[in-house]
């Protein structure tokens, strides 16, 4: 999860609380907005506590995965090699970007998003490779690595979602 950012959510909560402040707002609408706001505030609390280390780990994992993806793509020649080149360029950009302001959240988010974009683009490319290429062991292994990354990503996202919402009452 990159968007919505914690700031996006806080701004939305603030505006919606203001919107239900007038006397004409029906009671149900007030209760619903307050219920949703409480869930979202718990979620933002988690984001503030653990999102940064989650994203830094994600950057490491994505970089490692992309290195393997680039190696596989380079071995395929043609358009795959060109994509391998651009994937490697993004991987190499990473440490430079983070070293400028490593603690800056915007910087971390930007980096994580850029790497994930390369995984997304690479996966789309892999899905279009000819059937004979898809039948190889190497192809299966690289797809398995990408799936493992997806699973990891959803598990980390669950740390930001489940404690804030599950079992905490109506959402709306």
């Amino acid at each position: 999860m990159i968007y919505p950012t914690a700031s996006d959510i806080l701004r939305c909560v603030e505006r919606n609380l203001a919107a239900i402040s007038d006397d004409d707002t029906p009671r149900t609408a007030i209760k619903s907005t307050l219920a949703t706001s409480r869930h979202l505030l718990r979620h933002v609390d988690l984001r503030l506590s653990i999102e940064k280390p989650i994203l830094l780990d994600d950057i490491d994992k994505a970089s490692e995965l992309l290195g393997k993806v680039a190696t596989y793509l380079a071995s395929q020649g043609g358009e795959s090699s060109a994509l391998a080149h651009s994937v490697r360029a993004v991987i190499e950009e990473a440490p430079q970007l983070l070293s400028k302001a490593p603690e800056e959240m915007d910087n971390i988010v930007h980096r994580a998003k850029a790497l994930r974009e390369q995984i997304y683009v690479s996966l789309a490319h892999l899905q279009k490779l000819p059937a004979d290429a898809q039948a190889t062991k190497a192809y299966g292994e690289i797809r398995d690595l990408i799936r493992a990354y997806m699973r990891y990503q959803i598990e980390q996202e669950a740390r930001l979602i489940d404690p804030a919402f599950a079992g905490k009452g109506p959402r709306r």
Binding site: P4, I9, R11, V13, T33, H39, R172
Partner: peptide
């Protein structure tokens, strides 16, 4: 747009 309905916040997350 922060004026988005609060439910979008829920939909966008959980």
């Amino acid at each position: 747009d922060p004026r988005a309905p609060i439910r979008y916040g829920w939909t966008a997350t959980e």
